[in-house]
């Protein structure tokens, strides 16, 4: 990867969480967004750029949150009725869904419709869900927890900058304490 930086997965989670909070998500929604993005970056790469785009359009609290809610609703429908289809309008990047897909899989739901060559930025319009034998996720080929996760430096730096708004100025806090 040209212009990459080696990071720990928890750094991605922490930054995205803070960005999502600043964008207006409550802590629970921000954590879900952060887990989705982190899993997408680890499994598919390219998720951070999608986050930077989402920040521009304030998507975390609207399209991203609704998409994850819709996927969960479809999972419950599939468990009750044998199958379900969820449509995202507008389409959302895989970065908004990856961990939610994984959690559905862990509960025995096969989620189809993610392209084989997808990245975290790939737009997903439709997913099909049905109970079944879930294939294990592809081995990323390296242990990112041991060796680090290479991510786009520009996107990472942009997230660092955006996440800084989560912090409160030391001077303001000192002033409160007199």
């Amino acid at each position: 990867m040209v212009g990459s930086v080696l990071v720990a997965p928890r750094e991605v989670h922490d930054l995205v969480f803070r960005c999502a909070r600043v964008a207006g998500c409550d802590a629970g929604g921000a954590d879900r967004t952060a887990r989705n993005v982190t899993m997408a970056e680890v499994q598919f790469g390219g998720a951070l750029a999608a986050v930077v785009d989402a920040l521009s359009f304030e998507a975390f609290t609207s399209t991203w949150a609704r998409a994850a809610d819709a996927l969960v609703s479809a999972e419950v429908n599939a468990r009750q009725h044998g199958s379900a289809t969820v449509t995202f309008d507008p389409p959302v990047p895989l970065a908004a869904l990856a961990a939610t897909v994984s959690e559905a899989s862990a509960r025995g739901i096969v989620v189809s419709g993610v392209p084989g060559d997808a990245t975290g930025g790939s737009e997903i319009a439709t997913l099909d869900l049905a109970p079944g034998q879930v294939e294990p996720a592809a081995d990323p080929g390296t242990n990112v927890y041991r060796d680090g996760l290479p991510v786009d430096r520009g996107a990472f730096d942009a997230l660092v900058e955006a996440a800084a708004a989560f912090l409160v100025a030391e001077e303001a806090l000192d002033a409160l304490e007199g």
Binding site: R21, V22, C25, D26, A27, F166, V168, L176
Partner: peptide, 26 residues
């Protein structure tokens, strides 16, 4: 509960004096 911008030190803030505005540590 808040994270300060100075090396990310966790601190507490009185809600009556400063609104969290989505910056609270949950």
């Amino acid at each position: 509960w808040v994270v300060s911008d100075n090396t990310e030190e966790p601190r507490r803030a009185l809600r009556s004096l400063l609104a969290p505005e989505h910056r609270d540590v949950a």
